[in-house]
Each structure stands twice: as structure tokens, then as C-alpha cells.
Design a binder for these strands. Structure first.
Length: 852
RNA sequence: GCGGUCGUGGCGGAAUUGGUAGACGCGCAGCGUUGAGGUCGCUGUUCUUUAACCGGAGUGGGGGUUCGAGUCCCCCCGACCGCACCA
């Protein structure tokens, strides 16, 4: 009797797959293709258990689709540009390229033992000049097509380091290294015109039937289509060049309740005043402190500065409204100016309280309701309310109707016009950093901004740079920076900004279809392999990465690099949850601050946790996000070393539905390992079994039910449910008294059904049971319908909706028979207590409910 | 602040989408094997009451719709994800 030794089994089958080039994808028009893609990793150098979950989920799909006759493309690459490599360079002096490529090698050696069915022949990193050179070609085509332009935009500026900071490098409005108060500063930057495609990107969501509806909803809210009124307030004695303020509102029905006008500190009028008035300048400078993130702006205390200017109300010419510069108004949205109606907007109300502005209701919950408000009254737009200052004759109407009436009235009276606006802003792609794809343009004194010639691509990053001085090394690299103008040949300067790493990840899925080509894509490969049939990744990418990728697919269609049919590049999307792990803490005696302990230092007894060394009781925080500083990171390599890859794979799939978070527990991993050992032993026993037994038919029926349920689970990402079925079937098989032949058939099927999850063990079982070839090439078992038919069903009997009994009846029993049998039950008789039922509901094949 | 999601035994979680709540696993308990323990096998395990049966309660809290609600609607509480320069 042999025992389960993954350390021998797993490398053997991995070598066999590699030898046969099983996972190398080739175009084959004879077979249906299937493209499975997981979001490619940032090469941090350490494989995380979250990666194990992500790539195992995709691998189950890839292996299952192989078994169902598909020609599967399942590639892997590296999202290799970005800040961490520069941070490492600053901290340790290692060059970003050396750091990154070393990490890639390290991660690859960590990934290989997991047995994912990846086509490594297509591997690339986004920092390979081959890749980013094609990205530069794509950029030039987009520039040519009018999809790229330059404008000013604000960045986080660290006045001590004299460097632009990323949002994550700003903590509480201060630079993370310098601790200096961050300022918002304007720079000229490159932008993609994603907002031109806002409508298509919004409408396209409707075609994505196999995307989670929450992701579609988040994207729709992000794009944020709104219909409203745009009009202007006339300025009374405004500064030269400013005779009116253009505002946009989605609530024109509240216009008669306006009590002030607010403009963004970046509004042209604010800038004019800033230049003239030191008080305005001081206020604007104050507001510009702190980070640029929307979160930072929105959560800051609402403040305003009265400019002293007044505007005339378009409908009430006797009223003049004060004009405030307010810190919560974004220049990027609408016109950068609003009118405030404190009665019907919570922010405006807060503002009005602070600056003692009137609160004028335009509608009320009731005709005689008080007009004195203690908070803003903001009902749903679909709710009917009483308009005391409305635009149409109808006093009682919904907000929706009132908005339309207000727009009609304003347009009829020559005040503004209806417009549709989008919240979506253009995508700023400039980064003032070294470790990214260089933007392939040249600045020439004579010719202006000149695109590089395609034959000069790739514009490679120079190797000889240092990070000892803050700022972008490309700015200081004279021999790289200085060049000849591609147009006139005179001395010129290269653009030293590089691209946002979101650009890299916005088209890698297309590049995988022809990763070595000397154009961004190749038509016949893209036509054959696109779209991605199943995309798998984290919910944290629900908005930006996925929206940018959808935009790029359209841009690549416009520039001729992808077919029209690939405009929505991901047919199906699955977003998986995190892998969490308990945190173990004790309090340090001297100051009570938490000390974090590794799981190995802790032992569990009587439902409590104690330190192994001292016996001190430990506080357990369950299900926390893994974090190095909390010492609760699980190292997948250790798990693979201890239990094998199949155990790690089985466990990350088993406990939790894939879209939810899963808590990693040592006990759970041991249980998974124990089960796989049991399956191995059972297979070994069955291999040696001989002769006939009893219950062959029952075993075969259960086998076909298992095929049906596991298949359904795999089709719907119900991997945990599929695994629960496999546990059940293993138990059935282990207890079965069936004959050797039936058991062997059942065990071979078990091997096949397990193969997407535990491919190495499945191969080993298949071999032991005398299966033909490798199980990876075997076609998926089919459930026999005839074996699935049940002749009898168990029906629960409810009294007033509470289950009290159950009956077993023929599957085709009549309602009357079921009713009669139900009434005979002791529990029913007790409940009726001599009386007769009020009502009996019989749902055939489901349930009987008796109302008494 | 805005947008989104989730909340079920001691624990991870299941529930054909409005029809037997707690599948499967962990843990725990008992029995068997081994005989030091562990492994392995079998049985039990929502809570409460009870010797047991019979009952009662029960899916974060409160209310509603329905013959019937974990599932649908409203309010509240808590946790998590995103917020445009982290990837």
C-alpha cells in the first residue's frame, strides 16, 4: 500500500505536461477557442496567497474548458512598471530594471510548482522594450487619430522634495517621506480623450451580460451621465472680462431657492480675483494645501470665501446672490460653478449655516409644512412633493417632472438650455517618473510638440540613471533628453514624462494574442483569440482598470489594431474576494501598544489562543486583510512545501464562494490535505479490489448526479459547492459495497471531476486506474439523464409555514393524493386539533403548506 | 463625503433564486483501530426546554409584503472595497 506523496507526484506530472507542450496555445480553426485570463501580477517578488487564489480560479476554468473540447489560451505576464521599483531604488540603490527582472524570476520559480496550465511561451513584461515600444506605436496612432491631447492639470507637489507625489504618497495632506504639507500645483500633461467615449462606454455596459451587475453599476455611476440645465448668472460690476458666471445644475427645480453662487478655487474668475485681492489669494492658497484626491477634497471641512461680488437671479431680478469661492466645488465637473440651494442639498445647507445664508424651500413634504428647516429636505426624485416655488402649474409633482418643467420653462424664457453631462474626466496619463513607458514625442522650439518617427521606436529608457536626487532622473539625463527634432532636425528635447501604468495594463490582453509581433497586434491572431472569454481578477479593479481597458479596445479599433467585435474585450468577468487571515496580538506591558505574533508562535486550546513561549493569552482578530506589518501573511511556498500544490489549490477553492473573502486557516489546509490523502488511499484500495458486490446501480446513480452537480458548479463559479459534492461522492464511494468494476468507473470519474482543482493527484489516480493517456487530455464526463430521474420525492409538510413533517410520494403523484397523505400525518392532526384547515397549498414536487 | 458590497451555529460557509435553514468542511464529544500520542475508521453535534418524546426560538437589529422570507421592500447598526498619480 503506497501513500500520498505530493512532493513526488507533482513535479512528475508538471514535467509530463511540459514535455508534451500541453498548454502551448496554437491557432486551430477546427476547434472552438477559449481565452482565459487572470489579471497579471505586479512582480513584487513574493507570491501572495491571493495570487494563488486568483490563478487557481482561472486555472480551474482553463482546465475545465480544455476537457470540454476547447482550444484554450491561458497566458501569463507581468505588470512590471510602477512606483515600487523606484522606491526600492531610492531605498537600496538597486536599479529598477534589475530589481524588477530579479523579482520576475523569483516569482516565476514560486509560481511554477502550483501546476497552473499556463502558456509560458507567451510571457512578457510591460517593461520589456519589445512591449512598451509597441505601446509607443499605439500612442502615436492614437495621437494621429485625435485621441490624445495636452492640457493643464493639478498634481500633488511636495515642496521639500520638489517632486510630484502619487496619492498614496500623501498621508493626511503631507508627503510620506518629507512630512511637508503637500500643495496642489498645475502642470501641462498628456490626456486621453476618454470622455468623448463616455456615452458608448456607458451604453456598452448593457451588452455585458456576464459581468457582475455591481461592477456595471459602479462603472455607470463613475461615468455618471446626468441631464441638467446650463445657464448663466449675470455679474454685477464684475472684474474686467467677467460679466457672467456659467453654472450647471441637475436640480433646476430648486433654482428659485438659490441663495448663493459658489465657484471652484480653480475657476477663471477665482484666478482673476486671486491676482488682485490678497485675501482671495490667501484663501485659495489655503485651499490648495492638501492632496488632490477626491476623497481628501470631499471629506475636508466645507469652507468658503465671500468675494463681495453679486450676481442677478435670472427670474427674480430684485434678488442679488453673493458669490463664494468654495473648497468643495471641483473645476473638473460641470462648469466649476454652482448655485447653492441650502433647502434641498445637505452640503449647501451646512454651508448656509456656517455663513448665515437664507434657506429658501422650493418644495415641501406637505402644503402646510413649516418652511423653517433644521436640515436639508432631499426626498427621492421619484417622490411627489408640494412645490411652493415651482415652474409649472402643478403644485404636487415628482422631482423628475419638476426638473423637466423647470428646463422647459428656462429654455422658453431664454435662460440656458438642457445639457447632458458626464462625471467621467479625461484620463491623465503623464507621470513625472523614470520607471514607465516613455511618451514618444519631442519638444522643438521651432515645430512645437513633434511625434517620434515609428522607425525610431522603441524609445528606450536610458540605463545609466541614479535616484540619489529627488525628481525624475530623465529630466537630468542630458544625453537622453537632448535630441534632434524628427521634423526639422534642429536640437530639441524629448518628453521626459512617462506613461501611467494603467496604460500598460489596458491592452496586454490583446498583446497576448501575438506577443512577439513587430506591430501591436496581428489581425489573424486577434481575430481568432479575441475576446477574452473569461477574465478573472480582484474587485478593486472594478472601475479604473476595466474602464480604461474598455476604452483602449475602442481606441485600438479606431487605430486599426483590433476588430470591431473586440470593442468590449472581456466577454465575462469574475471578481474574486480576498484571502484573509487571523491576526494575533498581545499588548506590550510598558505602553499597551499592540505586538503582532506569527501564527507559528501561537497555540490554540479550549477555543482560546496562547503564546507557545510564555502561555500569555493572545487576542485573535479573525478575517483580517493580510499585511506584512501585522505578521499575518501566509506564505504559499511553505504550504506547497508542507502539503503540496494540490492541497493549496483545493483549500483556496473549497471553503468560500470565490467572489467572497476566504479566511486562510491552518486547520483548513490540514483538512484539505487529509482529504486528498483519503482519496489517494481509496484509489489505491480500488485498484486492488476484485469481484462483484452490491449496490452498483446506486453508486452509478450517485456518480451521475455528482457529474451533473460538479459540472454545474464549474460552469457557474460555484467551485466551493462543486468541492462539497466531491466530498460527498468520496464518502459514498468509500462506503459503497459495489463491485470492483463499478468502483473503478466511479473512481476514474472522480479523478476527472477533481482534475481542474487538483490536477496532479488526478493524473496520478488516472494512471493508477488504468486511464487512457493523461487525464488532462480526457474529455469531460457526461451525466446520463436516464440515471438522474427520481421516481420518488420527499415533500416537506408545513403548518403555517413551519416544517412539521415530511412525506415520500411518487414524483408524479396528484395534488389530491398529496393533500390526503399530508393530512394523515400525526403532526398535522395534532396541529389541526380536530378542526379543519383554512387552506392547503400544494406546490408539486416542492412543498405542502397547511394554513390552520 | 460620494459610489458599491456583505452580515446565517463555537468557526469557514450551503440553500436549484420566494418553498425542509445549517449541505460540505473545521472544531468539539463518544466509540473502534492503534494501543503512548498522532494517523485512520464509525457515530453525534443550531440554541433552548426535556431522562427522552413533544414543544419553543432562530439567518446583525427593528418594521412590512406573502399561504410561505436567509432570499423581496423600508429604516437602523456594523464590516469591507473604490474614489481618477498604488497596482
Amino acid at each position: 500500500m503506497s501513500s500520498y506523496t505530493p512532493s513526488q507526484i507533482e513535479p512528475r506530472w508538471q514535467a509530463a505536461w511540459a514535455e508534451a507542450e500541453t498548454f502551448t496555445a496554437r491557432r486551430d480553426p477546427a476547434r472552438p477557442k477559449y481565452y482565459v485570463l487572470e489579471m497579471f501580477p505586479y512582480p513584487s517578488g513574493r507570491l501572495h496567497i491571493g495570487h494563488v487564489r486568483n490563478y487557481t480560479l482561472g486555472d480551474v476554468v482553463a482546465r475545465y474548458k480544455r476537457a470540454t473540447g476547447h482550444n484554450v489560451l491561458h497566458p501569463m505576464g507581468w505588470d512590471a512598471f510602477g512606483l515600487p521599483a523606484e522606491n526600492a531604488a531610492i531605498a537600496t540603490g538597486t536599479h529598477p530594471a534589475d530589481h524588477t527582472y530579479a523579482n520576475i524570476e523569483e516569482m516565476k520559480t514560486q509560481m511554477r510548482p502550483l501546476g497552473w496550465s499556463l502558456d509560458w511561451s507567451r510571457e512578457f513584461a510591460t517593461c520589456d522594450p519589445d512591449y512598451y515600444g509597441q505601446q509607443q506605436a499605439l500612442f502615436l496612432d492614437m495621437l494621429d487619430a485625435g485621441l490624445v491631447y495636452r492640457k493643464n492639470a493639478v498634481v500633488n507637489w511636495d515642496p521639500v522634495e520638489m517632486t510630484v507625489l502619487a496619492n498614496e504618497q500623501v498621508e493626511d495632506g503631507k508627503g510620506w517621506r518629507s512630512g511637508a504639507e503637500v500643495e496642489r500645483r498645475e502642470l501641462t500633461q498628456w490626456f486621453f480623450k476618454i470622455s468623448d467615449h463616455a456615452e458608448e462606454l456607458l451604453d456598452g455596459l448593457d451588452t455585458l451580460d456576464n459581468w457582475p451587475s455591481k461592477v456595471k453599476l459602479m462603472q455607470a455611476n463613475w461615468i455618471g451621465r446626468s441631464r441638467g440645465l446650463q445657464f448663466s448668472f449675470g455679474l454685477v460690476d464684475g472684474p474686467e472680462g467677467h460679466d457672467r458666471i456659467e453654472v450647471y445644475t441637475t436640480r433646476p427645480d430648486t433654482l428659485l431657492g438659490a441663495s448663493f453662487v459658489g465657484i471652484s478655487p480653480d475657476h477663471p474668475l477665482a484666478k482673476t480675483l486671486e491676482a488682485e485681492d490678497p485675501a482671495v489669494a490667501a484663501f485659495c492658497a489655503e485651499v490648495r494645501r492638501g492632496g488632490t484626491s477626491e476623497e481628501a477634497i470631499e471629506t475636508a471641512e466645507k469652507r468658503g470665501h465671500d468675494t463681495g461680488l453679486r450676481v442677478r437671479h435670472p427670474f427674480d431680478t430684485s434678488a442679488e446672490l453673493p458669490v463664494y469661492i468654495a473648497n468643495f466645488i471641483l473645476m473638473d465637473y460641470g462648469t466649476g460653478a454652482i448655485f447653492g440651494c441650502p433647502a434641498h442639498d445637505a452640503r449647501d445647507f451646512e454651508f448656509a449655516q456656517k455663513y448665515d445664508l437664507p434657506v429658501i424651500p422650493t418644495f415641501l413634504p406637505d402644503e402646510d409644512a413649516s418652511t423653517e428647516f433644521s436640515q436639508a429636505y432631499v426626498p427621492l426624485k421619484s417622490e411627489k412633493v408640494f412645490y411652493c416655488k415651482g415652474f409649472s402649474g402643478d403644485d404636487w409633482q415628482t422631482g423628475e417632472a419638476a426638473i423637466e418643467a423647470a428646463i422647459d420653462f428656462c429654455e422658453a424664457n431664454g435662460v440656458g438650455h438642457a445639457v447632458t453631462k458626464y462625471r467621467l474626466r479625461d484620463w491623465g496619463l503623464s507621470r513625472q517618473r523614470y520607471w514607465g513607458c516613455p511618451i514618444p514625442v519631442v519638444h522643438c522650439d521651432a515645430c512645437g510638440v513633434v511625434p517620434e518617427r515609428k522607425e525610431n521606436l522603441p524609445i528606450e529608457l536610458p540605463r545609466d540613471v541614479t535616484f540619489d536626487v529627488p525628481g525624475n532622473p530623465l529630466d537630468r539625463h542630458a544625453t537622453w533628453r537632448d535630441c534632434d527634432c524628427p521634423a526639422c532636425g534642429q536640437p530639441a528635447r524629448r518628453e521626459t514624462d512617462t506613461m501611467d501604468t494603467f496604460v500598460d495594463s489596458s491592452w496586454y490582453y490583446a498583446r497576448f494574442t501575438a506577443p512577439k509581433a513587430d506591430t501591436p497586434t496581428v489581425a489573424e491572431d486577434a481575430d481568432y483569440w479575441m475576446n477574452v472569454d473569461q477574465y478573472v481578477g480582484g474587485i478593486e479593479h472594478a472601475i479604473l482598470h476595466l474602464l480604461y481597458s474598455r476604452f483602449f479596445a475602442r481606441a485600438m479599433k479606431i487605430t486599426g489594431h483590433l476588430p470591431e467585435s473586440a470593442s468590449e474585450p472581456f466577454d465575462a468577468l469574475f471578481t474574486q474576494g480576498m484571502v484573509t487571515h487571523a491576526i494575533y496580538t498581545t499588548n506590550r506591558p510598558m505602553d499597551g501598544r499592540p505586538v503582532y505574533h506569527y501564527p507559528e508562535e501561537v497555540e490554540l486550546r479550549d477555543g482560546k489562543a496562547f503564546l507557545k513561549d510564555t502561555g500569555t493569552e493572545v487576542t485573535v482578530i479573525p478575517s483580517a486583510k493580510m499585511s506584512k506589518s501585522k505578521n499575518n501573511v501566509v506564505d504559499p511556498l511553505k504550504i506547497v512545501d508542507t502539503y503540496g500544490a494540490d492541497t493549496a489549490r483545493w483549500f483556496v477553492l473549497s471553503d468560500s464562494p470565490p467572489e467572497r473573502d476566504v479566511e486562510w486557516t491552518a486547520a483548513g489546509a490540514e483538512a484539505a490535505n487529509r482529504h486528498l490523502g483519503r482519496v489517494y488511499r481509496l484509489t489505491d484500495e480500488i485498484t486492488a479490489a476484485e469481484g462483484s458486490g452490491t449496490g452498483d446501480d446506486d453508486l452509478m446513480r450517485e456518480m451521475h448526479r455528482t457529474i451533473r452537480d460538479v459540472t454545474a458548479g464549474l460552469e457557474s463559479f460555484g467551485f466551493n459547492a462543486a468541492i462539497a459534492k466531491l466530498y460527498g461522492f468520496t464518502n459514498t464511494l468509500s462506503k459503497s459495497q459495489a463491485g470492483a468494476e463499478a468502483k473503478r468507473t466511479a473512481a476514474r470519474t472522480l479523478a476527472q471531476l477533481m482534475s481542474p482543482m487538483t490536477p496532479h493527484l488526478a493524473e496520478e489516480m488516472w494512471r493508477m486506474l488504468g486511464g487512457d493517456g493523461m487525464v488532462v487530455n480526457a474529455s469531460w464526463p457526461q451525466a446520463d439523464e436516464a440515471m438522474l430521474v427520481d421516481t420518488q420525492v420527499t415533500l416537506p409538510i408545513q403548518i403555517n409555514g413551519k416544517r412539521k413533517a415530511e412525506i415520500v410520494v411518487a414524483a408524479d403523484a396528484s395534488k389530491a393524493d398529496v393533500e390526503a397523505l399530508a393530512l394523515e400525518q400525526d403532526a398535522v392532526q395534532r396541529a389541526l386539533d380536530g378542526g379543519s384547515p383554512k387552506k392547503i397549498i400544494v406546490v408539486p414536487g416542492r412543498i405542502v403548506n397547511i394554513v390552520v
